[in-house]
Design a protein around this nucleic acid. Structure first.
Lengths: 190, 190
DNA sequence: ATAATTTCTTGATTTTTGTCAAGCGCAAAA
DNA sequence: TTTTGCGCTTGACAAAAATCAAGAAATTAT
């Protein structure tokens, strides 16, 4: 079983062997180099990508700074969901932070899954609801926690990321400056 | 056309007359009084409610304070989505801030919609993706804006709420204390 | 109408976080 | 190896926001 098959099984739920092969066969393995862009703000995001290895940073460039929205690691699906679904210009820019292997599927092919696998619509919905809930949690963290608390919480749950990506991106993603991040980092834990 | 019919048409997309009647007939009009609870944290949220009139506050009680996640006004669907879909204990408490009329549908009946209206699965997905995108925007506002900017942005888009609900709840929902909210409020606009 | 409660404001103060500027360390490039 | 650039840290300072406490103002209850 490939990682993609494993991920689909565990995150979307049980799909029979045959359907799983059908789904996976629609994904194409592609590679992008460190620094390359998978998507740029304003372009239409016409594919959904699964990170097989490597790292992606999802961010927005405003007038004076870049805001990192999320960092996708191995085992994550990545896309500009709104752009992918509604075919509108994307809000996010997605760039590789390391050489990255992706299994990607075009929107066209993605729609075939729904035709081939009747159960898909339901599984897809459950998946999106799970993503929705994660965003709710993230908003809640901004309403109820200080920068320091968000740091520790994120470190607990995603500590392995800290020695893989520039810390300034994690700082941005948590809603603080690199300086604040650095100061929290060196504080003793008491 | 009732408000509910109108809302379904405009937010979920075009559904034919007959299907629309089917859907709407599954919703039950109920009334809850100011201060009453529609849902309490930990309980299973077994229904989806459309606010016909009145106001609902969605919040969480932590050890020392209450965090308001959202305030639903006329024309909003409200539920604990995760609890409704996965039948897990709800995270949110939902309380009426005023006497409120709701059109509610149980999960059982909600599932009938999918059976009766083949198009529903797709419309439902699009609706959830739209909600997802709104949450993304909200996270972005916390990563890129100060309390003052969030205040003004929210005022621009939801100003009518300011004379309908206790301001402390809006403050909490925007991630600031009532005192900070009050000070921003009295600041001249320059 | 009056009292009681809740909500909002204000001031003084502390804490948290951001900004600016400089320097250090490390890794990639020349 | 030396240089260059990038990322991280640090310090001094400024700004933003939280806290605490007291009082108005408004709402609700009596």
């Amino acid at each position: 079983m490939t990682e993609l098959e494993h991920y689909i099984t565990s995150y979307f739920g049980v799909v029979d062997e045959k359907d799983l092969k059908t789904i996976v066969s629609l994904f194409q393995l592609t590679t992008i180099k460190k620094g390359d862009y998978l998507l740029k703000t304003g372009r239409r995001c016409d594919k959904l990508s699964f990170v097989q290895s490597g790292l992606l940073r999802i961010f927005v460039k405003t007038d004076d700074k870049e805001i990192t929205q999320w960092i996708s690691t191995k085992g994550y699906f990545t896309t500009d969901l709104s752009s992918f679904v509604f075919e509108t210009p994307s809000r996010w820019t997605i760039q590789a932070l390391a050489d990255t292997e992706l299994y990607s599927i075009t929107k066209e092919d993605y729609q075939l899954i729904g035709d081939e696998v009747p159960k898909w619509a339901e599984l897809e919905k459950l998946f999106i609801v799970r993503c929705f809930t994660m965003l709710e949690d993230r908003i809640f963290s901004h309403l109820s926690m200080t920068a320091e608390e968000r740091y520790h919480f994120f470190y607990q749950h995603n500590g392995e990321l800290f020695n893989q990506v520039p810390l300034q991106y994690i700082a941005s993603m948590l809603g603080m400056t690199p300086e604040t991040f650095s100061r929290i980092r060196k504080k003793p834990l008491l």
